[in-house]
Nucleic acid binder design. Structure first.
Lengths: 228, 228
DNA sequence: TAGCTCCTGTATCGATGATACTTCGATGCA
DNA sequence: TGCATCGAAGTATCATCGATACAGGAGCTA
């Protein structure tokens, strides 16, 4: 006995917690199970982490290291918008590959509290939108663009975890939708009928609800006749 | 004593749980606290609900009743896209007003399991996208459009709850971005320079990374000279 | 060697979700 | 009317969990 390996015990506790969390993603884990895995008793764990939340924080920190350590997450293509695309995909891939970490990082919904470590990727994203704004490529404030990207990215990732169904097409669709929204560009459908329908539908007060509905019916009929 | 009011106790247990959950949104609640609030012992609760999850399920069901019961959630404007807009706003407003319910309904991220009651609003949304598709107003499959709207709507709501910061502008921006993405319409920025930049940036392999970067720099300079 | 600090173990607390067993009243049926 | 059945509720108890008070020992320093 008496290894007295210094900081080793602490690292082994984190590693054991990581394993348990990865084994049952989203579920709660027992401190005693962590201790048993390391061969140590509860007070030792409390000596290092003070509380369960302390251990969780350490695990989350480790998770973000893992996330941002994946070289793809930090290297830049030189173009901020392309970097946002790449960052989006890395984000989703990390969440699907590490649902245990991800739910700890972004899945614990409790009003007013978010892990401090979240600030790191958030900061990277803000830097990207700031660069894009400096190139006059955004149609919304840089901060709002960053928030827009983040909420959609987290939303699509959490949803895929909950449904246990990776959906690359959906992720890509949402990603491009977001980028189109913040850059004001995108691939519009070249269809005057469709465009007219949405303009009319978005302003039902101009013609009144009844006439607007009728207008859309007529436009639909036109579209069907043409394509049918 | 001996009220023996039949199903009354069950309802009072649900009501007490609802109060406790609303009092500490996102936090866990104690079955004993629920029982104390009603003046009943644990086995009685277990008689009605079988387990804690049983009670939670009943509460979630009640939450969805409340959500869909809000008249605004079900009445139709006659236009499916407008209904999606309205449904989005009702969704966000409900989440912010009832973070306790909302975190139970959509905030419990655990791979592979989502409350059955979630199917109800999901079904409504699918019906709307199906109607929009029937009017040839979608550029993506109806199912994907529904999923797109849902993940973004949940994402923006959860994020606002976590940050404890309502952000109507962000919600509206994401909402319109989603609608533009699924309908293929939207308000493009009338700026050829910006459009050219995004086209170039999205295809860095055509010119190569170096030349693409340079091109964007030049376009940026042009944009600045013009607007400055 | 005395003393100090850092780890670690023993034992225990209070709270929690869950259950076995019993009690009591209402109801249905002969 | 008398009896059996069933639903509703209480008593008592478990196992587990997060957390803590306290003691002991290893190692270093003076």
């Amino acid at each position: 006995m008496a290894e007295h390996a210094g900081g080793d015990t602490r690292q082994r506790l984190i590693a054991a917690a990581v394993d348990l969390i990865a084994a049952t993603p989203g579920e709660d884990f027992s401190l005693r199970a962590v201790c048993d895995a390391v061969g140590v008793k509860l007070p030792t764990l409390y000596h290092f982490f003070g509380s369960k939340q302390g251990l969780v924080d350490a695990v989350v920190e480790h998770g973000f290291d893992l996330y941002l350590g994946g070289k793809a997450a930090t290297e830049s293509s030189g173009d901020p918008i392309q970097d946002i695309r790449a960052g989006w995909d890395v984000h989703v891939a990390f969440g699907l590959a590490n649902p245990g970490f991800y739910t700890l990082m972004y899945g614990k919904v409790r009003p007013g509290h978010s892990p401090a470590a979240q600030a790191r990727p958030s900061e990277i994203l803000r830097a990207l939108t700031a660069r894009a704004a400096a190139q006059h490529r955004l149609v919304v404030p840089s901060e709002q663009a960053a928030a827009h990207v983040l909420v959609a990215n987290i939303g699509v990732t959490l949803r895929q975890i909950v449904l246990a169904t990776p959906d690359p097409a959906l992720s890509a669709a949402v990603r491009e939708g977001v980028i189109a929204a913040i850059t004001g560009t995108g691939t519009l459908r070249d269809d005057p009928l469709a465009a007219a329908m949405e303009i009319a539908a978005a302003h039902p007060d101009v013609l009144g609800r009844t006439q607007t509905t009728l207008l859309i019916e007529w436009l639909t009929a036109l579209a069907e006749r043409r394509s049918g």
